[in-house]
Design a protein around this nucleic acid. Structure first.
Lengths: 185, 185
DNA sequence: AATTTCATACTAACTAGTTAGTATGTTCAG
DNA sequence: CTGAACATACTAACTAGTTAGTATGAAATT
């Protein structure tokens, strides 16, 4: 039942937003009562934290596998872009909640999640700066700004990309990797 | 007073979110009462719509000026990126509200705003496809996907870019234009 | 085998507080 | 003296969270 509440909440939070979804809404969708909710979660915010950690911890773990591989920095970057894009197909609603509802976490939890987000970003930045040092990428780039740009491209996809639509996740990842590596000129 | 309410609302919506900001909060920050608010606005949602239109209409207008110029497509693209990035410095709070709180618009208003957002995106797409046709950009690109990518890079900046921080809006715009045009390899 | 004990997984009813919106009244400039 | 620009006081609906209690089944004891 705990997983059921969590899954249902993700769907409702995605559709209506965190504040606009009452605990009543969640439990009614499952045919249980509020007591059930508070049997498994101590607060609405703890549930949100649970969703956040489930998302970012999984991403960090998969990022680490790429980082520890023996691939070139260029290939690592491509893999990372593919990881982020294909994740939309697999955990789209989770991701949307993650990107939109962080402000509803309490200070303490927000700090923890922010730290993990930054860790992910710094790991990406590392691939860029390593790639520059090893002459896989151009000299003179600003790794931090490039990392932000890449995250912008991929994370923004959550706003519009529909994996069941005209283009597949793999193909989109390819297009994005090509753009980041080669530009449009 | 109407403008004052709007400006104050933007600041509060940015900091706390739309649902978390009560009309009481808004009027108290201005030292007036709820009667004043409902004299100028018929509902909280209408105020949000007002903020949305103020933002997107301004952007569309400035985009049109770029589009109607005699610049090359490459230069138009650079100007557009600069427009979006420098806008953060000038209308940051407005933009954040625009990107985050659209789901609180009623169906009818959401459709109107969405149409204008798409118009902006289609205009950008047009620059890309014109540039390809005129051999300023590479052949074989997917203009729609490139447009989404560019919007991702620029719009994501709202999440992290602090214009008073270590890097200026102009410089960031330059870095982004360079990345989009030339890639990192 | 029968019975007591105890934990799990809930429910129904409640509290205490907040919210958007409204109805009506007041002030004051032209 | 009229209407624009407010203020006051209110309501109906909704909210997160609490509490006391219960059905069920499994384990322990007799």
């Amino acid at each position: 039942m705990k997983q059921g509440i969590k899954q249902q909440s993700i769907l409702l939070f995605e559709k209506k937003g965190f504040s606009e979804t009452s605990i009543q809404d969640i439990v009614e969708a499952l045919g249980v009562t509020k007591g059930t909710f508070y049997y498994y979660f101590t607060s609405k915010e703890q549930l949100l934290m649970d969703i956040h950690l489930g998302y970012i911890d999984d991403l960090l773990e998969r990022q680490q596998k790429i980082q520890q591989s023996q691939l070139s920095n260029r290939k690592k970057l491509e893999e990372l872009v593919a990881l982020l894009i294909t994740d939309i197909a697999n955990h789209g609603p989770s991701g949307k909640v993650f990107f939109r509802e962080m402000r509803h976490l309490c200070e303490e939890n927000a700090v923890e999640v922010k730290a993990k987000r930054e860790k992910f970003r710094k790991n990406l930045e590392r691939i860029i700066s390593d790639g520059i040092a090893e002459h896989e990428f151009r000299q003179g780039l600003e790794p931090e700004m490039i990392a932000f740009a890449i995250l912008g491209v991929t994370n923004w996809s959550y706003q519009w990309f529909n994996p069941t639509g005209g283009i597949s996740a793999d193909r989109l990842a390819g297009i994005y990797s090509d753009l980041i590596l080669n530009g449009i000129v």
